[in-house]
Nucleic acid binder design. Sequence first.
DNA 1: GTCTATATCGGGATAGAC
DNA 2: GTCTATCCCGATATAGAC
Lengths: 201, 201
Amino acid sequence: MVAEGAGTTRAQIVDAANRLFYVKGFEHTSFAAIAETVGISRGNFYHHFKSKDEILGAVIEARLQSTRAMLAEWDRDEPGPAERVRRFVEIVIANGADIQDFGCPVGTLTNELAKLGHPARPQAVAVFDLFRTWLRAQFEELGLAVEADDLAMHVLAFSQGAATLSNAFHDGEFVRREVDRLHAWLDERLAHGRPIAGSAH
Amino acid sequence: MVAEGAGTTRAQIVDAANRLFYVKGFEHTSFAAIAETVGISRGNFYHHFKSKDEILGAVIEARLQSTRAMLAEWDRDEPGPAERVRRFVEIVIANGADIQDFGCPVGTLTNELAKLGHPARPQAVAVFDLFRTWLRAQFEELGLAVEADDLAMHVLAFSQGAATLSNAFHDGEFVRREVDRLHAWLDERLAHGRPIAGSAH
DNA sequence: GTCTATATCGGGATAGAC
DNA sequence: GTCTATCCCGATATAGAC
């Protein structure tokens, strides 16, 4: 596979489809809509992709890439695992506007593909796995090895619950409260995980 | 509006559509699929409904009705508000198989209609409101008036997070752990809400 | 109230000129 | 590599016989 510039037609198609699949859903997104966004004709698609499913595959691949890049950035920028987990938790605030309008891109695509019985569903779940594995690694680094995966899944579940209700009720304050609640839960968890000598909990 | 028996063609259409909208999604469900399930011809639809959107409206109405009935049943069967909330929490276990395969019917429909820009979205959200209001009432009865709505939303968020990840990972043990975690959280909350004289927390 | 036949439209996909 | 023109199909929806 050859690296490609962001300006290539293929990359533009993937970018536009990525956004549209999120905003309107995979099935509801037509070639016409993608073509209009990119500014090309419908026929031109098939020079770059054999089918709509192939575009979906490229979109998921792009999401995997950008997710890996984001997690690597967090690894670099944040001083420790606790800060990294909190950075993840805050994502539902940082992307608050989109989440209110369209939900979580990972959760909603995964569910749509499940209902469609689409063969690309496992690929979509792999994005979840990226977060899960990364979160687990943070908890392991925090000395919570035995329960690390359980804690990772709990944090993921928080993000999905917050996203779904944010989308349903369009309530930003609710999201803030849930985020704060999870931060407090983390405080509690990390206090137990790293017992300080003389702490009187 | 006249009451109708469960055996009428109209009721059969609503039943079949209700299930199919859940299993395959609203947009992906064709009249042909509903017709095949019910055992009627496609043309016969339009004697009972003017459009697919009208079927959707009837399906949501049916869900509102059945939800109200379920909550009323819980009100009757469970001895107190704490038990009622726990009954709700256990729903992700009771409906575990369907949730693994298709997610939460309320959350997934709400999100799909949001992405479609469908005018029936507020109606779908009304199902969420039913649960929210009912949960809030339970917490109020437990003497947690000021935070009742916040707690209700947290319990709802739990259910959505558990459902989304159950669907993504097909992991029943994860759901069980999340349910147990929420039960423990409730224990904590209710202990604080109803301080027992001499309790040594 | 249910059926068959059909209209109409938009979707994905193909052929071939430039 | 991009375009126009077109095919094909499945979808909603309608018309009208029974």
